[in-house]
Amino acid sequence: MYDAWKILVGLAIFVGLFTFAFWMNAGKAAPVPEVKIDTPEIKKMPEPERKCVEDKHFMRTTHMQLINDWRDMALREGNREYVNKRGEKYVVSLQNTCMKCHSNKKEFCDQCHNYTGVSPYCWDCHIEPKEEPKGNES
């Protein structure tokens, strides 16, 4: 009388759709990201000086905010010089600073971004470095 079966079918469809992402990816283990920092530019640096603009932990957790701030600094405030906690100066530029060292987008950026399912739109505009053809690597 109250159309119970209609409600139940409707509920089943809703639950099915709502949990679609789980069904879709069930049984597929995503590979653990393997981030590589063995680009020619990084290798050129002597081991003790092999540092990013800020320390590793900071960059892992906060690089997105740093990049956001760099964007506003360079573009909106016209300030293209970044002084880090160590007092060292860097040119504020994704393409000309970050990607000069990390010239391996696929093995660096994409690793974690794909794993966590985020797709930042940086490379819609910023040009990713031309990657060395495979085989040069030992």
């Binding site: 900071f58 906060t62 905010q65 701030d69 600094m73 405030e77 300030n79 970044y82 880090n84 906690k85």
Partner: peptide, 13 residues
């Protein structure tokens, strides 16, 4: 003027 070096970190925390 803007305290740039640590601004990001400050905001993060």
């Amino acid at each position: 003027m803007l305290g740039l070096p640590h601004r990001t970190e400050r905001r993060a925390k």
